[in-house]
Simulated assay, not measured.
Amino acid sequence: MPRHARGYDTLEAEAWLARRDRRLATWIRRLGPIAPDPRWRRGFDPVDALARAILFQQLSGKAASTIVSRVEAAIGSTRFHCDTLGRIDDATLRACGVSGNKTLALRDLAAREANGEIPDLRRMSVMDADAIVAALVPVRGIGRWTVEMMLMFRLGRPDVLPVDDLGIRKGLQLLDRAEAMPKPRELAVRGERWGPFRTHAAFYLWRIADSGAKPVNRSQD
């Protein structure tokens, strides 16, 4: 099976997008190039990343970081996986500030890892983006958006467009000078012209949204 590289040529992506979309080309010139994300070259454990995504959901960065630090201290490790999460009971997780729903999500993630259901980086390297989404969204507390953030920010897949993301939709509204924010389906159709570099288009749409509104928080930042 062909392996998927982690990352892509961002200058090639910008040149492609500028040729395909005149409005986006104007913004690319205005905002300047977007450098490759250094995390594309760093190893990481998908289970650990998913556990942290669960813990960060619906919390400010500071509050979530405090809870993560408490859990790390309780398990005696800075890595979350089935073995380390097995060192802590539900009551202790709750004492660390982890909600009941998040506790159930962490238990489900750990059980699925123990059963071999969570692909590691090596397996992911031969899976396309849709296959990775299909493998991970059955985990309690993990939705498509969370997996898309991993695909973009950690795996460097070049052709991911999170159509439900409000920041991206806001960016397209500003790009097209539309009166209303586009619906996800409208964004998907509009984004067909950006393939195979829809990830990079999304990065620009976030920057466009940030230039005309309050910055949008993203869990993988």
Rank of each mutant, 00 (worst) to 15 (best):
R3N: 06
H4T: 01
A5Q: 11
T10A: 11
T10R: 13
L11T: 14
A13M: 07
R22H: 13
R22K: 15
T26Q: 14
A35H: 11
R39G: 00
W40D: 01
I54C: 02
Q57R: 04
K62F: 02
S65Q: 15
T66G: 14
R70F: 07
A74K: 13
G76D: 05
D83V: 12
R87M: 07
T92W: 06
R94K: 15
K102C: 00
K102P: 03
T103H: 04
L104S: 11
L104R: 15
L106V: 03
L109W: 08
R112Q: 15
R112C: 10
N115L: 15
N115D: 14
I118G: 10
P119L: 03
D120T: 05
L121H: 02
R123Q: 14
M124W: 01
D128T: 03
V133N: 02
A135C: 11
W145H: 06
E148F: 06
G156F: 06
D159L: 01
V163P: 01
G171F: 05
L175S: 10
A178D: 07
M181I: 15
M181N: 09
K183Q: 15
G191D: 10
R193Y: 05
A201Q: 13
W206S: 00
A209S: 14
A213N: 14
V216F: 14
Q220P: 00
